[in-house]
Nucleic acid binder design. Structure first.
Lengths: 210, 210, 210, 210
DNA sequence: TATGAATGAGAGTTCATTCAT
DNA sequence: AATGAATGAACTCTCATTCAT
């Protein structure tokens, strides 16, 4: 039994896998899970129908891979930006800004996540919750609890408030138009939320627009 | 066919239609649009599978009917409660309370609406927006603009703020558990939002929890 | 809820089902279970591809139905003939004659049974054994045990000998040519077996041929 | 490519071929021809899926090779034992004993042969008959005709009786349980058959069991 | 010689929809 | 108006086979 396994094969495999995942997220975003067509994904990636099954066990497995990959990407994207400042109030703004930027830059990923979050498939929902737990923790600890300990936020329950922020974020960020623009601006939402969080609500700016 | 029978026919027809719609909303809520099974809907309503096509042109037409019907029901439910008080701040609370109550009492309807709102089907989304326009107007005029004219709310753009309130409401209210309970309370959301809206943010109550 | 279910529907259903089963046994006989094509069966029966699924849950379920139906038919066919005489020796001859006649007249049924009996599918084997139990009992009780009680057969274990007869029968009867003719004659096998069973082996007839 | 390497290549090739055949007979026995998976065979033999096509043109060709190889093995096994005695009656016993021993010792081979013998694939059946012709001849000449010339067997047609013996043997020997044990003993079958063959049927032994 | 990524024909199955009754 | 048998397009998934390395 001789093994010729070399870097060449590994490289091809990883590139093919990447193409398939990229094609899949686009298809899932456009058609939803049920409407998505596995053969179309394979062909959009430049391969024959069957190829996708060399990389993923099933349509469901493909979606689950995408959810987990996206959650990781999403977390990384947001964490990196939130941690740029140490002030909790500033972090709230960064959180919404980064979140909305993610929704804009990774339009398909965002749509797929929201489809799953609000869709009827309970397994996907479960996977979503698991995969997004770290982000809940980020918001709860590195933003809310931080703000409380810094004395700038009211004494709220961090977990509870984290849920609320996440939901507001998801609810709004997910409603983007076709270019990835949300209907409202990140700063406006951040402002609204901060007014609810701060011990000393800030002087109102931008009186004429939210 | 004699005339005195016509009314009876109309009644039977309308009862059948009602049963079908009721069965459909449950099926769509549980399975999503693509996963829903026309046959199962008919059976659940107590009819054979062909019957549904005597009342609706297609599965899509059935869903569109449901969206429009639900939007009407939803608007009526919320309008009735919001109009119980004339004070804009009080109306914000009533709006969230009524909204969450609707999500609880009309669980299936709520799930189907959210599925469509966040789902991939653009036609359904269009129909949703059209159908919910009156509710946007209710919030914009009878709550936000009212509050501004009453002097209690900041000078925000009513349309914009109405969008934001609707999205916060939908984002949160849609994430209910299986008994229809949302993760956060209507009052908490209303409090958060009011703090962002009021000229004079209220003294903070419930310091320990949100 | 009005029911128009009438004899017409029942009749159509039972005729269609019959056609499908008839087409199926032919297809299974020619192609084997794995090689058989569900769509081809439906079309051979004069229906569209999908029709078969209005009558059978799956390809497997269809095969199981056929096994059970055939076993019943087979038993009925053989029982009727075996019971024509009360003498055990005569019944041995009738058994082999009836069995070979069945293999000839129900060629496809016989091939399918033997395919399953000697094939790799354990579920089908199980179903076969269950379905053919009554025939084992027929041979054990109404032939072997009868012959012993009549004093013409040696004191053999009825169950054991029934197995042996069944296997000899199946082994031989199943090897028919394309017109349904077995390679050896029923009478010859019966003769061979009777010589092994009888207390007083018969005078040898047909000396020149087996 | 230097010459002294050729022998080594030949050896490696032949070892690889052997591994593939060994893995194949197991897979075919467990899954049947249609259910067998070429990929799984290669893997079980310790090679990648493509390797098998360096040695066999196709799945069918692989099966045909196995049939022919097994028939040779089978014949050798039985011939060797049958020829140990010169007495025809004794040879009948040896034939059944050796046959049942083969079924036990070469369980997978036996299953595959029987699958093909009773299966729907006519090409495989043809190959089987061709490959087993020498064994038919062994039985016809070295057992039946011998017994007749020795005066111990009745004047039967050797070819015909050989068919019958082969079929009884295959029919019974093929129905082994998972450890390779047939339901009835070789001696019992031999006894039954001998009683049908002998000029002077033997005194009955084992009256209580078969 | 061995590899394994890629192929694509073909399978079983589902189900919205039609229509004669 | 209600029925339910029939339809057939469309889908996911399997796997024998090819071939460049």
């Amino acid at each position: 039994m001789v093994r010729y396994k070399d870097n060449e094969h590994e490289k091809i495999k990883s590139e093919t896998r990447r193409s398939l995942l990229d094609a899949a997220i686009v298809e899932f975003a456009r058609e939803g899970y049920e409407g998505a067509n596995i053969n179309r994904i394979s062909q959009a990636a430049g391969f024959a129908k069957g190829t996708i099954y060399n990389y993923f066990d099933s349509k469901r497995a493909l979606m689950i891979t995408l959810i987990e990959e996206t959650a990781g990407l999403h977390l990384e994207f947001i964490t990196e930006q939130v941690h740029r400042h140490d002030d909790a109030s500033r972090r709230v703004e960064l959180f919404f800004n980064a979140g909305f930027a993610f929704a804009s830059n990774f339009l398909a990923h965002g749509l797929v996540m929201v489809n799953n979050l609000y869709g009827p498939d309970t397994e996907f929902k479960q996977v979503m919750y698991q995969a997004y737990l770290p982000m809940f923790e980020l918001v709860g600890k590195d933003i809310i609890a931080l703000g409380i300990s810094q004395g700038t936020f009211r004494q709220v329950d961090p977990t509870h408030m984290a849920s609320m922020l996440m939901m507001i974020y998801l609810g709004i960020a997910s409603q983007v138009n076709e270019e990835g623009k949300p209907w409202v601006e990140a700063d406006q939402v951040a402002g609204l939320v901060l007014n609810g969080l701060l011990n000393q609500p800030r002087a109102q700016k931008n009186k004429s627009h939210v």
